[in-house]
Design a protein around this nucleic acid. Structure first.
Lengths: 150, 150
DNA sequence: CACAAGTGGTCTCAAGATGAAACCAGATCG
DNA sequence: CGATCTGGTTTCATCTTGAGACCACTTGTG
């Protein structure tokens, strides 16, 4: 689905990433995929998305190598959508969004889903940015280095 | 700008976060903001966004407490848009997107911007998800725990 | 096997979101 | 003071999205 503007050729990885998953639905579809959803109808009823949109998004994510279709694991002739390695790489993006949402968008006691460690059952730790030599870095300890234009 | 569907009341922090910054332009605006952009015209020419859209997005981000307007730091009577504490919290989301883009969307030698440690000048380390007791966690080591519905 | 229901879509149409460009008021510059 | 820059608003044409009808194939039921 051609966007009005394509960022595909941008020299910035953020822009290129958004070109692939920057629309309203893609990250929600991925969130559900990480949560175990695999079937068209599951996505559709879970998200309340229009079928046409869902078909278009799933096609797009598949073309971009984030999802792939596989024969249904329950033995029926239907297909299911599963995350590829590349798609699983987006897990941290979803986690970062979740942690920001938890920290800034809820009152302390609002009910909300939590991401927990499967073994311990405890909430996961907050993500932290570190330098190559393992110092903790904040936003202002970093800068963006433009590519060489030589 | 009311979206067709609002996710604001979702019990999922990911959905609620996307309700705020899930559209095509918001994360790009934030990326530029993290990169030091503060003025309307800077955003507009840097992104190639239509002025109406930009005004609408900036208003939205301001209403949601992610940006705020301040008197221009250069002494003129103009205003500038700066990130709030809440907005700076989105830094890790942008970093996660960047790292995924770098890892999966570029050929090894394609030129691209990099996020580097300001002191050492070296690229930052990859984000890692850890448990409360500091074990490294992968996607399948976690699960989403739904809120109590008692 | 016949038939109803479920799955995984496509197609169409109205409404909403977006891009482009004109226009404008106040601030700044020379 | 007039020209230009900044930070928008308004309007309009176009693209995207949501809702729902429709359809082919699969599965389940008797």
């Amino acid at each position: 689905m051609a966007k009005r503007v394509s960022l595909w050729n941008a020299g910035c990885p953020v822009a290129r990433a958004l070109d692939v998953i920057g629309d309203w639905w893609s990250l929600l579809i991925l969130r559900d995929a990480f949560d175990g959803t695999t079937r068209f109808n599951e996505f559709q009823s879970g998200l309340g998305i229009a079928k046409g949109m869902l078909a278009s998004r799933l096609r797009h994510l598949t073309e971009r190598g984030i999802l792939e279709t596989a024969p249904a694991s329950d033995g029926t002739a239907y297909r299911e959508y599963v995350l590829t390695e590349k798609g699983r790489g987006l897990f941290l993006v979803v986690v970062a969004l979740r942690q920001w949402g938890e920290a800034h968008l809820y009152e302390p006691n609002d009910p909300r889903s939590r991401l927990v460690d499967r073994d311990a059952g405890a909430p996961v730790a907050r993500l932290v940015l570190r330098s190559a030599d393992d110092r903790r870095l904040g936003w202002c300890d970093t800068r963006v280095e433009k590519p060489d234009v030589t």
